[in-house]
Amino acid sequence: MAGTGPLLEIRDLVTEFRTETGVVRAVKGVDIVVEPGKTVALVGESGSGKSVTSLSVMRLIPKAIGGIVGGEILFRGRDGRVRDLVHEPEPAMRALRGNEISMVFQEPMTSLNPTQKIGAQIAEVARLHRKLSRADAWKHAIEMLTLVEIPDPARRADIYPHQMSGGMRQRVMIAMALACNPALLIADEPTTALDVTVQLQILELMRRLQREIGMGILFITHNLGVVAEIADTVAVMYGGRIVETAPVEELFDRPSHPYTRGLLDSLPSVDHAARAAGKVARLKAIPGSVVDPRNPPHGCDFNPRCRWVIPACREAVPPVFPVSPTHGARCLRWNELDG
């Protein structure tokens, strides 16, 4: 990897959308750092702004409906130079996308071209960015299919997306994303539509490829089990802000934002003694609904659902408090959540 320092550094990113009812601020000052060869999990529910953050990095939000209105997205390219993607001209972004920065989406069927053979779609990426000849690009496509463990790759290169299963299609998407050896892979819920057995295959594949290729991964998910499997560090997003960030073990050991705490507490776990006694078990659910980005509450976005809420929480958005040098929580009461 050329140079030293983070691969991607998002600083105070703000992204807005224009809607019929006015401007909606979906991302309200987000900071994320992805180191080379490491995985950052961005965790959040619908409306948290996690997908908008990733689309902002890729600069894939159509100008007609919205865009980035503040902050920096510093990306260290293969040449070692750091560029701010917020101000990068569109032709330069096109040269980066699918090349140095790649993206894998949740639903592979909607991001593959249904009328083109698998191999041709992967070859196209290699032809576009690496200027390979037609024959070399096809050979490269088959190598990529081999890399993502698709059996019988030469034959599979010659079929269409609808002839494959969901798991196979997601492998093809990953093959296409990795065709140019990206430094950064953004994976937006890549396993959410898959069965658990296939999800595990894809997670293991991504881990292996990261070891071999050394790419940094920004992994967007809502599944805390998947986070525990794949992340080095975790950023928890709620209402367009990062509410907590920490190395993965620290986050699970000492969740210091009530939302993170609530997510972990609401996971089903069986109390065998209570069950044997015939008790009907209940989960510790977080009350209320996820925040509506069109109508956020005053102060901390989580305050209407929070059981630790105090009047100060309704007055201003809390700053980030340092739980440890590597762990931050945006909660006034981060130190009082025990019990």
Binding site: V196, V227, A228, E229
Partner: peptide, 25 residues
């Protein structure tokens, strides 16, 4: 067994190598 193994466990210390089912249904 394979289904139970494949379910991701929300505990980063339990990251483990498991029997992974090959292929699809």
């Amino acid at each position: 067994r394979a289904l139970l193994d494949a379910a991701p466990v929300p505990d980063p210390r339990k990251r483990r190598e498991r029997i992974t089912l090959k292929g699809d249904l």
